[in-house]
Structures are given as C-alpha cells and as structure tokens.
Design a protein around this nucleic acid. Structure first.
Lengths: 213, 213, 213, 213
DNA sequence: CATGAATGAGCGTTCATTCAT
DNA sequence: GATGAATGAACGCTCATTCAT
C-alpha cells in the first residue's frame, strides 16, 4: 500500500519543499520514534527529540506546531507500516482456503507487533488518549482486512452482522497479540496456534450458520 | 470475593485512626478515581485531586507517600470491583453447561467494563507502565476464572496448553470488550452475541479435540 | 554554676507548673537535641521532634511558640553544659602556675566539644544565624573564663587590651578545637600539645611585656 | 594564583556558547552570592536567585543542574578570591624575617574576610555540610600557605608535627578572625595586633625549640 | 531559515503551624 | 490540657514553547 498522506497534512506549519527540509523532518520523526520507543512517553520531550535528531528545538517547531503533531506523525508512520504487514483483501485470491487466510492474517498481525514492539506498545499504552484522535482512515482500512476474513467466500456486500463480527474479531486478535507481546511471548508457537484455533473455530462456525440460512 | 486488603497496607504514611480521617482518605481516593476518569492521566495532578476531594494537598500527603501510592489505591479498588463482577470458579457448578458458563463470563466482563468505563481505560491505557507494577495477586485470580472456562468439565489440573489457551482467551475477550467500550458500543447486543459466538466456538472445538485424544 | 534560667524565659507560652508538664517539656527538649544531633538541622522538623519525644505536635506548640524557641532551648541547655566544663575563675587559686591554668582551660574546651560533638557542630554550623541570636549572658560568662587566663596574676581590673586579648584567645582556641573536631582529631594528643603551646607562648610573652611596662 | 577552573566543569548542563548566555550565567552566580550574603542560606531559594539575577528560573536550571551546583559555583568563586588574598609561599623570599611573614599572613586573612564578610560567614556557617563537600584542592592549597609560616626557615620537608602545627595555627587564626568579623571588629587595630602577637609568640617559641633539638 | 537562550506556568512534595475534637 | 487531622504557602525543578540573533 502506498503512503496515505502526501505530507503531514494536519500540520498548520509550512510543508517542507526543499530536500534539505525534507531530510530534517525525516530525521525529526525518526528521532521521535526512537525516543518514544526507547525512553517511553514520559521521557519523550521535544528538546530530547531535537537533540536526538541533531536539529535545534527551533527547527522542530518550524515543522511541527506542537508536541501533538509530532507524535501524530510518528503514529501515522507506524500505522502505515502496520497496514503494509497485513494482507490486502484486494489482492486476495477468493479461492484461497479459509485456513490459509487465517494463517496469513494471524502471522501478519504478529509480524506487525514484531516490527517495533516497544514503539507499538508505547503508542497504544502510554500516549494519552487525547493525543490518539482515532485515525479513521487507518481504522477503515484496517477493518477492511478483517471483513475479507469474515465474509463468506462469494463476493457480496457485508451485512451489518458481518461488520460487527469483523470488529470483534479484529479487536480480539489485537488484544491477544498485544497481551502476548506484553508478556514477551510473541515468538512462542503456542500463542500462534491457539490464536489460529480461536479465529478458525469462529469462522468455521459462522460459515456453517450462513449456509444454514 | 472479599476485598484483598485488610487495610491500605502499602502506605508508609500513618494510617487514619479517627473517623474523620477515614472519611478524608475515602474522599481522596474517590476524587482520585474521578479525576483519573474524567480528566485522564495527564491532568491527574495531586493538587487537582486534593481540590476535588475537598481536602488540602497536605492532607493528601498525610495518607499517601506519593502520587504512585495514590494511583495504586485507585487501581486496587477498581481491580477488586472487577474481580467481584466475574464468576468465581470455586462456586461454579461443574454441571453447568458450557454455553451458560460462557454467557456468565462474557456478561461479567462486559459488566466490569460498564462499572467505570473511562476509569478502566485510563488505568489500562494511560497510566505509565512503571506505575502499573503488575498486580500479580489480581492477575493470578483473573486467570483462574478463565481457566475454569477452558478446562474440560472433569476436574483435573490444567496442562500447559490449557494455561496458554486461558491466556489467549482472556486477552482476546479483554481486547474485544475494551475496543467495544472505546467505540461506545458496550451496550450493543451484537457485540455480546458475536463475542459469545467467538468464545463458544473455540471452546466447543477444543472439547471435541480433547475427546479425540 | 547554677542554671542561668529559672525557666525558658523567652517563651511567650505558659511556663509549665505541674510536674507532668515539666516532664513533657524535658522530653521535648531532650528529643529536640537528639534529633538535631543525629539528623542535622535539615531534618530537624517539629513533627519529628514531637514524635521522638512521644508527645503530640499540639503539645509541643503548647510549650514552645515556634521552632525558634525550641532550638533556642536546646542551645541554651548545651551552652550551660559548656560553661560547666570550663574552670570557673571565681574558684581559681591565683597561685596556680600559668602552665597549669592553660592546661585546665584547653582540656576543658576539648572536653566541652567532646560532650556532644555532633550537637555542638550542628548548633554552630547548621542552625541559621538568624536563629542564633547571640546569647549575651553566655558570652559574657564565657569571656570571664578567658580573662582570668589573660590577666596578670595579681587581681586587678582588666584593661581594654586585656579584654581584646581574651576575645582573640577565646575565639582562636574555639576555632582550633572546632576544626579539629570537624576533622575527627579531637582525641589526638598532638592537637592538645600544639594548642597548649600556642596559648602558652602567647601568655608568657604577654606577661613579660606586662612586667617590662 | 590563577583561577582553579578553566570553566564550570562540574555542571552536567550545557555550557554557554553565546556571549548572551555567558552574561546570564555570570548574573546568576553574582545574584546567588548576593542573595546568600544578604538573606542567608534559609532564604536562598532558586526562584529568588533567578529573580535577583533578572533571569527566569528556567534559565537558571539551564546552566546549573540543581541548587547544589549553584551554591558550589558561588563557593568556588569565593575560595578563589580567598586564596588570591593570601601570600603564595612559592613567591616567598625565604630571607623574609618571620615577623614580616606573620604580618603578611594575618593581614591577608583579615583582607580575605573583608572581601565579602557576610558571604564568607554564610558559606562557612549555614550552608549544610553535605553541600560543602570539602574542596580538597582549596584546603591543600590553603594549608600550604600556613606551612610556609610554620616551617623553619631552611627549606625542608615538613615533619608530622609541622603539619599539625599548621592545622592548629590555620584554624586558630581562622577562628579569631571569623569571630572578630562576627562582632564587627575586623577593622579594629587591636585585633590585628593581638593576633599577630599570638601567632608570633608561637612561632618564635617553636623556632627556639627546633634549634634546641 | 536555523539556532539555542530564554521563558514561566505548573508540577510533586514538605513542613511549620492551627484548631476542632 | 492533649491530640493529631488539616492546612496551604512555598520549595526545587521540568519542559513545551517563543523569539532575538
């Protein structure tokens, strides 16, 4: 999937055009992600980020109106990486057996959390809710992946029950993987197995019910 | 379940003797929970809590050595309420059909999150990890509830696979309910239904597999 | 020498008459001295003193108008002990050879600092100047001891030069002993020897000069 | 003697690069010395110092990691001035008669205390011991000045008795001058005379004893 | 534009003191 | 009286943000 934004759109500051500016912005976001991942939200100070980026605090505020915008950039960048690790339903072969599709998704989600575990956790656990204004673009896209799992194999528009099933499924998987990561058990095969069992059982049962109707 | 603490043992501060001071302590913890729930962790300042409690900042520090102890008190109180809302496996009739047991647990977890949704989320999402020193007493007790669900109906000690299944199940349910709460959909019956479907399907399949072995 | 005060005269609070009150006051002053000596001025808090005295903070303020009065009581008590350790010129045999008198005084001053070294140091080094309103009664008495050293052997009223010599001598001895205590060398015999040498040389030379005049 | 520090090396804070910040740092140290001298240690608050310096509290903490570092800067600066006022034994002509050398030292010490009497007293009397981590560089240098006085005129390494004599002498002079300053008698010629008499008598007697051995 | 010195509101916390019980 | 709960001004210090250079 391509990047979802042409630039840090939410910023009221000037969008950098020159490549030197572009490099500075990148360095700052990179540094911000690093500070967030290694020091946590509490130690995530703008001055620290500027220092780590090799930029001045003034430069930072040239491109980001405030701390919120900065952390938002980090989050956006990370969510893009997350989506990229999840199989895109558009490129999905409808003939793929359900079991394989489940495997792909679970493996994908676990891969996502392995990308930058610490950053992921801090972003979700520590950054105050007020600063996590739900990124609807991301959520819609994210849900689309799960609906492809839930929907019956023939291509048809999702009913309301399907949407809810997708939501429940997505958040359940998310929760289980997140907790496993928190326990340091992301790599344990049993986690993967049980999770696949959970999702598989659910989907198989739903399919049976659909046929019965 | 009874309260897990005979008194606020963790404090190094004087424990209140007069009834006046007991009232003060209660007011402070109450206010702390309220501030945490309504303003979030970032605005959770000791002065704000004291003000909300109608006490002075000095009184607050008379009973809580620091901010950590205060938020700990709030968390402890909340976790007790959480456990109280979950069916205790010890009082569980083993003859109860699986479907009923699933219903009880899902209803219980949803009830838990309905107790004080916002507080629950802030406690889990915003309070820095360092301040959430995993309350092992709580977690053990919490897991015990889920193992009773997962275990086959005959009373036998849980195997390692069962423990992991309990963990995955617990965190999946937690995640789904948590997310539903975040979307303001806790009361929606579809959520409840799909969640029960998810858990039920998993457990039924596990039972079949157990019989086959 | 008798106690210099009938009671904590400087206090605006009621002088305790009953023996129970008297005991309370004593316990408080005792505790105050102990806290001051063991924890230093920075940790010398009224609540701490009350606790150590086994009294309530309210009782403390019943007898001492403020912290200043309390520390003043401690200082006064200590200065009395100091004076008691110094030979009283009134009981001094004028025939005593100068060398012996010097020995007595130096030994006395060193003894003074050994009484309660830590308290002495804290009282002189840490307690803010504002709280050490020079106790003139003490200083006059203190100086009288030194004048007896300095004055020629015949009893005559001290000239202005003698007063200054006494002051210089007193403060020099004080400084040397104080510094030795700070270095933990109060017990070292060399200190005593050199100090006696210093004082002795000075007095011998003054006597020669006096005779010459 | 030259300044003992090339820069405020002890600080973990950024050292000023621009001339503007150098001026700020100087103003802060200057103000700190002034506040310490005029208000005493108890009123020596970082906010007060910043205010007196015409800087913000933030600026103060930009250059000094904490209150300790600030007061350390003041002390260091003052101790440099103290040493500068004392004759350096290296530049001392060994042929200089003892009486002259005594005069130089006493005059020097009195001059030292006249530089900034109140600051000197507060620095020595009120600043908590924990914050006066004995500046050994200073003390060694200080003692060297006194040893030059005590040592016999021929250049030879000091024996252990000489070291102690130097210590006693230094602290005695210090005490006498200190007390005179406290009484506001620093400028009185009698003080100077008696002090020179005290020191001179001691040294002359020591010289005689040395010859006898 | 980049820099980094400067700002100051606001934090967590202490402790001398008061006063209802 | 004695008690100790309550008070709140004031402390040391942080950090998001501004603006002169």
């Amino acid at each position: 999937m391509a990047t979802r934004f042409p630039a840090t759109t939410q910023s009221s500051r000037r969008i950098p055009r020159q490549q030197r500016s572009r490099a500075t912005v990148d360095a700052i976001v990179e540094a911000a992600a690093h500070v967030l991942a290694t020091r946590g939200w509490a130690k995530f100070t703008t001055n620290e980020v500027a220092l780590a980026a090799g930029a001045s605090i003034g430069s930072l505020y040239q491109y980001f109106p405030d701390k919120l915008a900065l952390v938002d950039s980090v989050r956006t960048r990370h969510l893009d990486a997350v989506l990229a690790a999840l199989p895109d339903p558009d490129t999905l072969d409808l003939a793929t057996p359900l079991a394989v599709r489940v495997d792909q998704v679970i493996d994908g989600v676990i891969a996502v959390h392995s990308i930058n575990q610490r950053l992921h956790r801090v972003l979700l656990d520590e950054v105050p809710l007020a600063m996590r204004e739900s990124d609807s673009v991301f959520e819609v896209e994210y849900l689309r992946r799960y609906q492809a799992l839930v929907l019956p194999d023939t291509a048809c528009s999702p009913g309301p029950g399907d949407v809810m099933a997708a939501k429940v499924l997505a958040s359940a998987i998310e929760g289980a993987v997140h907790a496993a990561a928190a326990r340091g058990e992301l790599g344990v095969s049993e986690v993967r197995r049980e999770l696949k069992g959970l999702v598989g059982a659910y989907l198989r049962e739903r399919r049976v019910q659909a046929v019965e109707r």
